[in-house]
Design a protein around this nucleic acid. Structure first.
Length: 191
DNA sequence: CCCTGATTCGC
DNA sequence: GCGAATCAGG
């Protein structure tokens, strides 16, 4: 990915809006938060409108050394860090950039608004109803409500980073449809 | 643990 | 210039 004028502009805007580096990275897609921070500094627009605790001259990295400083494969690190970033659509609805990777069909179909709590779960489903701004990598991206409405939220429940949904919503989202995928073992015979 | 920005320095 | 690795902290 490269820092095109448009991406730089968006970066500036989002940074000025107070988004965190990781949030901006997610919005932009194809970059890590490190890249964003690095760019921000290079653009000389760090600091933002904070109480500027700043100053705090950083000590040089004492150890250095670091033999295997970097992974051999250039993209390896980025890949592990941002497997989902590539999935984000940079183009189009910016506000939905962090939405789970789903086809239009999927968006229309599940109508997750009314979450069926019929499934047996050990714990009650806890949807934190977070906004896109509050979404983190380890938060469930299960949409709640109408994406076109201002009250649109995401579940926000805990999930392992890289996973789209929390355990509960993953169970809903990834229900095998039996008649599809027959190449998969229908069920485990015994034990 | 999760996260934040800041810095260094090989590329 | 770029950004991963690292640091320092909340």
């Amino acid at each position: 990915m490269q820092w095109t004028d448009e991406r730089v502009e968006l970066l500036k805007k989002l940074w000025a809006d107070g988004l965190s580096a990781s949030q901006i990275a997610a919005e932009l897609g194809g970059v890590t938060r490190n890249a964003v921070i690095g760019k921000v500094h290079r653009l000389g627009l760090s600091g933002r409108a904070k109480s500027a605790p700043s100053a705090a001259p950083r000590l040089r990295k004492p150890t250095a050394a670091s033999p295997a400083h970097r992974v051999s494969a250039p993209m390896a690190a980025a890949a592990t860090r941002a497997p989902q970033s590539a999935a984000y659509a940079t183009r189009g609805a910016t506000a939905l950039a962090a939405a789970p990777v789903m086809e239009a069909r999927t968006i229309a179909a599940p109508a997750p608004r009314v979450v069926p709590v019929q499934l047996v779960e050990t714990q009650p489903i806890v949807c934190e109803n977070v906004t896109i701004m509050e979404l983190r990598e380890n938060m469930c991206r299960w949409p709640l409500g109408d994406p076109s409405q201002p009250d649109f939220r995401f579940c926000g429940g805990r999930c392992t980073p890289g996973q789209a949904y929390c355990a509960h919503h993953a169970a809903i989202a990834y229900q095998p449809t039996n008649d599809r995928r027959r190449d998969r073992r229908p069920n485990v015979p015994t034990h």
